Simulated assay, not measured.
Amino acid sequence: MGTIRIGIAGGAGYTGGELLRILINHPQSEVCWVHSNSNAGKPISDVHADLFGDTDLKFTDSISQDIDVLFLCVGHGDAKKFLDNHEIAASIKIIDLSQDFRLNLNAKHRSRSFIYGLPELNREAIKKAHNIANPGCFATGIQIGLLPLAAAGLLNSEVHINATTGSTGAGQSLSPTSHFSWRNNNLSVYKAFEHQHLNEIGQSLNQLQNNFDQAMNFIPQRGDFTRGILAAMYTECALTLDEAYDLYENYFKDHPFTHVSKRNIDLKQVVNTNKALIHIEKHGNKLFIISIIDNLLKGASGHAVQNMNLMFGIGETVGLRLKGVGF
């Protein structure tokens, strides 16, 4: 595969900026244009200041058809609007980072059909896909913690989930709960039991265990840190701890970014990387699972590039061997 020519819609936000940071250093990609109505004509480094000296690209309010793949980094509901308002050649592949096409009942737009882009679930389908619906950030972290159990038909009781995300998960638009003075040294619950990512999680678990009908009791939290998601889950399970480790390690053995740790894990191990780490423990009849990802990378833009690599038949890890922050 030669150079992959790329267009990005919605390049001024967090996911668009993170995507640019990856792609301008990706050895087999060329970013041809970055669309933003509100920033047209401005250098990209005016918005993403850390890219000063790395690129001379400017935002544009027009698009070109001379690309191989289009990334949609727009808000939820805006991906469909963008495709309605811009004629995109049928030959151009699309990777959508919004939630517009994630559910099977919404996975078609005109003549395009979207595949749910979780490699740990649908890798072979992604390789053949023309259009990808990138998973949500909470959904990615939680699914990675539960997929091995579903694949073995072992999700037979309620699942309890507590997950905390960094402030970048709320996007760049200001709201009362995203101001520094509110978020700093603070912690809060939101959308308890009702988070929108529950639908795609349930869809994936049913794909592997078609009789799965258990309650998923999900309590999302806003953390006072910038990036990362830690999801802590438990459910009843008859497996011994050794059997559970064997199950998880076998399920993920061919997935280069997902790793099972027998030591406890913390967010600094994955922040600024495309990795997902899992740690499991047994407490009585309950299996306790911790899953951690960077919400902007494995939870969004890194995941999208991983899907691009699979779609274009190049190494899955190309451009994504990123260094964690450590300290």
Rank of each mutant, 00 (worst) to 15 (best):
I278F: 12
H259W: 08
D246V: 01
S261V: 10
K268L: 05
I265C: 07
R263G: 02
L247Q: 07
D242K: 01
D266M: 12
P256G: 00
V271K: 08
K282Q: 03
Q269L: 12
N274W: 04
D294G: 09
N272G: 01
N285C: 08
I265W: 10
S261W: 11
K286Q: 15
H279K: 14
P256N: 00
N264D: 14
H279G: 11
S261L: 08
S291G: 07
L277T: 03
I293T: 11
I293N: 06
I289E: 07
Q269H: 07
K298C: 03
E281W: 00
N272E: 15
K268A: 14
I292T: 05
D266F: 15
L239F: 14
P256Q: 02
T258Q: 02
K275H: 14
G284E: 13
R263C: 12
Y245F: 11
V270Q: 05
D254I: 04
Y248K: 01
N264W: 05
L287Q: 12
F288G: 00
D242F: 01
L277A: 00
N295I: 08
L296G: 09
K262A: 02
K262S: 11
N272W: 10
K262E: 12
L241A: 01
D266A: 10
I289F: 14
E249A: 04
L297A: 04
D246W: 03
T240V: 04
F252M: 02
L267P: 02
L287W: 10
L296T: 06
D266E: 15
R263E: 15
N295E: 10
K298E: 13
Y251D: 09
L267G: 02
K282I: 08
L247R: 07
E243R: 03
H255Y: 10
K282T: 00
L241K: 08
I265Y: 05
K262I: 11
N274S: 04
N295W: 06
F252I: 09
E281H: 10
I292C: 05
L297D: 07
